[in-house]
Simulated assay, not measured.
Amino acid sequence: MERLIERSLFASRWMMAPMYLGLAAALAILVWVFLRELWAFVLIVPVITVNDAILGVLALIDLSLAANLLMIVIFSGYENFVSRMELDQEKDRPEWQGEVDFSGLKLKLVASIVAISGIHLLKVFMDVSKYTAEQMRWMVIIHLVFVISGVLLAAMDWIASNAKIRKKAATLPVD
Rank of each mutant, 00 (worst) to 15 (best):
Leu27Asp: 05
Ala28Trp: 05
Phe34Arg: 00
Leu35Gly: 06
Arg36Thr: 02
Ala40Cys: 00
Leu43Gln: 09
Leu43Gly: 09
Leu43Trp: 07
Val45Ile: 11
Val45Gly: 01
Ile48Tyr: 04
Asp52Ser: 10
Leu55Arg: 07
Leu55Gln: 07
Leu58Val: 01
Ala59Leu: 03
Asp62Asn: 12
Leu63Asp: 04
Leu65Gln: 03
Leu70Asp: 02
Met71Gly: 12
Asn80Glu: 14
Glu90Leu: 14
Lys91Trp: 14
Lys91Ile: 13
Arg93Asn: 00
Gly98Arg: 00
Glu99Asp: 07
Val100Gln: 03
Ser103Asn: 06
Leu105His: 09
Lys106Arg: 10
Lys108Asn: 12
Val114Ile: 11
Ala115Gly: 07
Ile116Gly: 00
Gly118Lys: 09
Gly118Asn: 02
Gly118Arg: 00
His120Leu: 13
Lys123Asn: 10
Lys123Ala: 14
Phe125Asp: 12
Phe125Ile: 07
Phe125Glu: 05
Met126Ala: 08
Asp127Gln: 15
Ala133Asn: 13
Glu134Gly: 11
Gln135Thr: 11
Met139Glu: 14
Ile141Cys: 09
Ile141Leu: 08
Ile141Thr: 11
Ile142Arg: 14
Ile142Phe: 15
Val145Glu: 09
Phe146Val: 00
Val147Gly: 01
Ile148His: 06
Ile148Ala: 12
Leu152Phe: 02
Leu153Gln: 08
Leu153Asp: 05
Met156Trp: 13
Met156Tyr: 15
Ile159Asn: 03
Asn162Arg: 12
Arg166Asn: 09
Lys167Thr: 02
Lys168Ser: 11
Ala169Glu: 06
Ala170Glu: 04
Ala170Leu: 02
Leu172Ile: 11
Leu172Phe: 05
Val174Arg: 13
